[in-house]
């Protein structure tokens, strides 16, 4: 494949998908270890009502209000889940199920009630994203990467996703020790005077920021899959958190690149004329990686469990 075709059409989506995947996988490591994996699921469901409310308030499909709306909805959902869990004395899984399904239903209803036929805002878009349409029209080949005029025409999602990735990485680097400590031994962290509750909320907010940015670019399926699958697969590869995070980033990038290529070119190889959903294929590839790790990963068993069990 020539650079003239690859750089404008495939390079930006692959980069965006990889950034999004890593940005979600990083906080996902901690969510999986803290047994909060389903928070990612809840966040990506409630982003829809957040986006719809932001649209109804501003009356336009513009990125920042919608991202704020989705992030706000995520925080509201997390607080509501805590509220139902604590005050109503309902187990966390069920209270999560109550909150996110109701908020999602509210979002769908609002969407149906409001006149959004004139704008590109629908449930399908929120689910699959439009990765394939994030192309770089100003590029003509590899040399465009050095051309400032052409670079200005890059899809804005690419820059946004890169910034979010830097933010997420920065948060985890900055709070590395407290995060690690409170994840593995929350009681001990609290005796050292750490505000583990605030740290937990900060982690969820970081996850929500990553989810919302990724959501805008690639849809919610990748978000849920990337929160959980690469960290879960990495968990089966090693016992050290540092190495687990490295593995999860590797798996995330692998899933993004392989998934995009398979979705775009796989059907052509099989003789079918049209590409399939890249977002869905990336999620599928991440599942295949997890399945392989679950079958052959060196640390796939629980400690103390006999090898044959």
């Amino acid at each position: 494949m020539s650079g003239a075709e690859f750089v404008p059409l495939s390079l930006p989506p692959i980069l965006i998908a990889s950034f999004a995947a890593v940005a979600c996988a990083l906080p996902g490591n901690f969510l999986v270890l803290r047994k909060q994996a389903m928070i990612g699921d809840a966040i990506s469901h409630v982003a829809l009502p957040g986006i719809v409310v932001a649209f109804l308030l501003t009356g336009a499909v513009s990125t920042w209000p919608m991202m704020l709306g989705a992030a706000g909805a995520a925080v509201v959902a997390v607080l509501l889940i805590q509220f139902v869990h604590r005050v109503g004395r309902i187990d966390p899984g069920a209270s999560m199920g109550v909150v996110f399904t109701a908020m999602f239903a509210g979002g769908v209803l609002l969407l149906e009630q409001s006149d959004t036929s004139s704008v590109h805002l629908d449930v399908q878009h929120a689910l699959y994203g439009n990765l394939e349409s994030l192309i770089w029209l100003d590029a003509f080949g590899w040399e465009s990467l050095l051309d400032p005029v052409a670079l200005a025409g890059l899809p804005p999602e690419l820059l946004r996703m890169a910034v979010v990735l830097v933010l997420v990485t920065g948060f985890i680097r900055l709070f590395w020790r407290p995060l690690k400590l409170s994840t593995f031994d929350e009681g001990f962290a609290r005796t050292l005077g750490m505000r583990t509750d605030l740290l937990g909320l900060a982690l969820v907010v970081t996850a929500a920021v990553a989810a919302v940015a990724a959501f805008d670019a690639v849809g919610s399926i990748i978000v849920i899959a990337m929160f959980i699958c690469p960290p879960a697969a990495a968990r089966l590869m090693t016992n050290a958190l540092e190495r687990q995070i490295a593995w999860s980033c590797l798996f995330a990038v692998l899933a993004a690149v392989l998934g995009y290529v398979l979705a775009g070119y796989g059907p052509l190889w099989l003789g079918a004329p049209d590409a399939v959903s890249a977002a869905g294929m990336i999620a599928t590839v991440s599942g295949v990686i997890l399945a392989l790790a679950a079958l052959f990963g060196p640390c796939r068993h629980r400690l103390g469990q006999p090898k044959g069990a």
Partner: peptide, 16 residues
């Protein structure tokens, strides 16, 4: 059969 917790397994299966 693996060390993954049930919530992780649920999330992985549903998204994939």
């Amino acid at each position: 059969r693996t060390r993954l917790a049930e919530d992780t397994a649920i999330g992985a299966v549903l998204s994939v």
